[in-house]
């Protein structure tokens, strides 16, 4: 009888301990900081560095370009609840200018690299009233296509996460180093293939490759074509005009173009290849794997034998 009572006591203590542990885990989960981001690359950097220790939220629907997403008041209210909001900077996500967010929680990941931002030059100014001319000019914002710039942004993400969870710094540092390595390898491979491309003229289907072109010294000019739309006559004329001064043999698309468009371009002696900026979460893979696919697409298009 005494033995039974002791056994029951041990079981009760064990059960209580387990319950307490479970309750602490639930508490930890409930209070794990929420980190919101405005694009997928930043969400990926945060997930890579922080792992499960924070809840990374990237609420932009998969079929929307995060740069031009316009969240409703409820979505903004969610951002207001975040412990940290990671911004891309360079005027990315114009809705930020129209939203009210807590300044102390905003982290502009490109603020330390502000002098490296590329201003857009195709802007029309307008004037009305006594204010004089003004434009809605901005900066090119697909900054993460320059892997060194991306590494700088990852550094800003790391710093912000360490400030948020200082007790996790050793883990974060280790994972950040791994991420830096991945980005470094992508940078090296891009440089190698860019060397092979040299000053061959390229056409970009959309003006989102400014940082890629600058970082890897690509001689690219942009048109305004959408991959899922058939170009109209004006757009073809725009391309002919561009080709007359910039005789490109390759067009680099941000997404898989329509078959007909590819065929028509081939008829003109222009090959197509896809280099996904990966601003939104990919259906498969992650930021590094998508960038790796991009690099391999370039390597296939410009193989070593082409030298």
């Amino acid at each position: 009888m005494k033995l039974l009572a002791m056994l029951a006591g041990v079981l009760i203590v064990a059960a209580c301990t387990k319950e307490k542990q479970a309750s602490e885990d639930t508490e930890a989960l409930r209070y794990s900081p929420r980190v919101y981001t405005v694009n997928y690359p930043l969400a990926y950097f945060a997930e890579r560095i922080a792992g499960e220790s924070v809840k990374v939220v990237f609420p932009v629907p998969p079929d929307v370009d995060p740069a031009f997403w316009s969240p409703d008041a409820e979505a903004i209210a969610d951002y207001q609840q975040a412990d940290l909001v990671l911004l891309n900077g360079a005027g990315y996500a114009g809705w930020l200018q129209r939203a009210t967010l807590s300044q102390s929680r905003l982290i502009d990941t490109s603020s330390a690299l502000a002098d490296q931002l590329i201003p857009l030059d195709d802007t029309i100014t307008h004037s009305h009233g006594p204010g004089g001319d003004h434009s809605h000019q901005g900066m090119a914002f697909t900054s993460w296509l320059d892997m060194k710039f991306a590494a700088g942004q990852a550094r800003a993400v790391f710093d912000a996460l360490v400030r948020l969870r200082p007790e996790n710094e050793p883990n974060y540092r280790e994972r950040w180093h791994e991420l830096q390595q991945d980005l470094g390898e992508l940078d090296t491979r891009l440089k190698v293939v860019a060397e092979r491309i040299g000053d061959q003229p390229l056409v970009f289907s959309h003006p989102v490759f400014q940082y890629l072109a600058r970082a890897y010294k690509l001689s690219g000019r942009s048109v305004h074509w959408e991959p899922h739309e058939t170009p109209d006559n004006d757009q073809w004329r725009e391309l002919f005009k561009l080709l007359s001064a910039h005789n490109a043999a390759w067009m680099i698309w941000e997404n898989e173009p329509l078959r007909d468009t590819v065929s028509q371009l081939e008829g003109m002696g222009i090959e197509s290849l896809v280099f996904r900026p990966c601003g939104n979460r990919p259906a498969e893979g992650n930021f590094v794997s998508v960038m790796l696919d991009n690099v391999m697409a370039l390597e296939r298009a410009f193989p070593v034998s082409a030298l």
């Binding site: 008041a73 903004i76 209210a77 207001q80 129209r98 939203a99 009210t100 967010l101 807590s102 300044q103 102390s104």
Partner: peptide
């Protein structure tokens, strides 16, 4: 001001929510 003003002065909401977009 910014949202931080409310938390700094510990102001609580009787109804509704903080301003979220311009004009609120």
């Amino acid at each position: 001001t910014s949202l931080d003003y409310f938390s700094f002065h510990d102001l609580r909401f009787a109804f509704g929510r903080p301003m979220a977009v311009l004009g609120e």
